[in-house]
Design a protein around this nucleic acid. Structure first.
Lengths: 278, 278
DNA sequence: CATTTTCATGCAGATTCCGTCAAAATCCCG
DNA sequence: CGGGATTTTGACGGAATCTGCATGAAAATG
């Protein structure tokens, strides 16, 4: 393999994750450790990466999106549909608080360009919105949790103390009869404060989250005002949620369900205008 | 075969994949190795391809170094040198506060992977560091100023109120005898709070900033502890700064100047830390 | 402070590159 | 058409570079 090609490949691997261990790179490229070391040294000198003990971190020009991994295995299409359906719930001029996570990121994406005030503790969402001139963005600070890029902790909680928003939109790690759960204690504490900030609490979750138990309990079902979920929602949860007073919004489904309306239920964008120069 | 035709064919082959080994090209064209070498040398000279050990890579169109924000006219190299010199001032385990701006971004880049606690209100810096494991990142929240991606305003100031750091590293819009200036009132107010947070105030600026007047005054020269600047610093400023008690660090210069010393004159590859979960 | 991991350096084998030179092709001109 | 000059092409050997491995040093970890 050509050295130049190999280095390009290395850079690709590193920039995808933001960082990579030497071992990962060696296994990915199938060359010796020494070679990877030497390549990293060259890339470091060129300023594209920064060598560290055990690997390298990306330091090139900003990457559009970190594209952090999605372990849930749920298709991006479902999440996008949820994002679009949630965005339809939000009116122009609203203030919304967006939690971190892949699903809420889709909400942010669907909201792009709309005249709303966004408050978020998520770095990817902030990045997405920072360039949008049409709307205000308020960033919640705090300790940044490495992998997911969300600000958490006492500083974040204190900062949200004086903030009130129309809708607080939160993701979930798992939802069972006992309520909404998430994996991280610090995250859950921060999310509790988020819920307190919102007049209305909206949970976004794909169907794979239902029936899954996670480490820490965030809240009971009755504390949720609205839930946006894809049509794969297990039927057994419906009565449970409804009796808890949760309004269910099905994303991307046919618009014959009660709550679905949404400027466009289908994201598939079909026919429309097209013009050939004749 | 005509030489011109052969070269065109070569270029076609290389541009198709983006790269090619010498062996591939020899086999494709059915000529000797020497001939291909000579052709590649000519194409390299013409700028169409770039020769490498073992082959060549296409270098036709993309020039991925447009030097995006070049209002200052200062080259990226100078800024990078300033970043490296500033990083050399920081010891492992320090807590540093990083302001927004292109120069401080270079500091963040040079600091990548080092075991330091970084506090910043800059979205690009946060983005850069979020993927770097094993290092703490504290994000200052607030109203995000659209174009530059920094968090400002009362929320930011309030959040910094309870924070103390070893070194506060700030950029500057312009530096004159009366002190340090910047363009934006909100920005300056936030930066004042930053200075209050730091035991030591470090200003980073390239030589083009000197003698330039900007809208709002941030502070007087005597409030600066250290200044990191490229060797293009106008001589007339030296006595002025020294009498104000500012320690001057010249970036990228030979390490025979008084202030340059720091663990190692050479910035070459500082071993660091990094570790991913097993 | 001992153990384990990672890093830097030197070295040998292999590959690639460069300068030189001779053969072949092409061109120029009578 | 032919002779000689010029350019192009292919080949060869020494120099330089790249790659992988081994060894001792340095750093991280508990």
């Amino acid at each position: 393999m050509l050295a130049e090609t190999r280095r390009r490949h290395l850079l690709e691997l590193i920039s995808r994750q933001g960082y990579a261990t030497l071992d990962q790179l060696v296994k990915s490229l199938g060359v010796s450790e020494s070679t990877v070391r030497r390549d990293l040294e060259a890339l470091d000198l060129a300023g594209s990466v920064k060598r560290t003990h055990g690997g390298a971190v990306y330091s090139g020009e900003e990457r559009p999106m970190p594209a952090f991994d999605d372990r849930t295995g749920t298709s991006a299409d479902e999440k996008r549909a949820i994002g679009i359906a949630t965005a339809a719930l939000i009116e122009d001029g609203d203030t919304v608080l967006l939690d971190g996570g892949t699903t809420t990121l889709e909400v942010a994406r669907a909201l792009l360009g709309r005249p709303v005030q966004v408050v978020t503790n998520s770095l990817p969402i902030a990045q997405l919105w920072a360039s949008s001139p049409r709307s205000d963005l308020i960033l919640i600070g705090g300790f940044v949790y490495p992998r997911t890029g969300v600000a958490l902790g006492p500083l974040a909680i204190a900062m949200m103390n004086g903030i009130r928003v129309r809708k607080a939109i939160l993701g979930a790690g798992g939802i069972v009869a006992e309520g909404v759960f998430n994996s991280n204690l610090l995250l859950v504490e921060t999310e509790r404060q988020m819920m307190a900030c919102g007049q209305e609490v909206v949970i976004v979750a794909d169907h794979a989250k239902f029936g899954r138990q996670e480490l820490t309990r965030l809240c009971g079902l009755s504390e949720i005002d609205r839930l946006v979920v894809d049509p794969g929602l297990p039927e057994s949860f419906r009565p449970m949620l409804e009796s808890a007073g949760v309004t269910i919004h099905l994303a991307g489904a046919s618009p014959n369900h009660e709550e679905i309306d949404s400027t466009r239920g289908n994201h598939q964008t079909r026919p429309i205008t097209m013009r050939t120069e004749a």
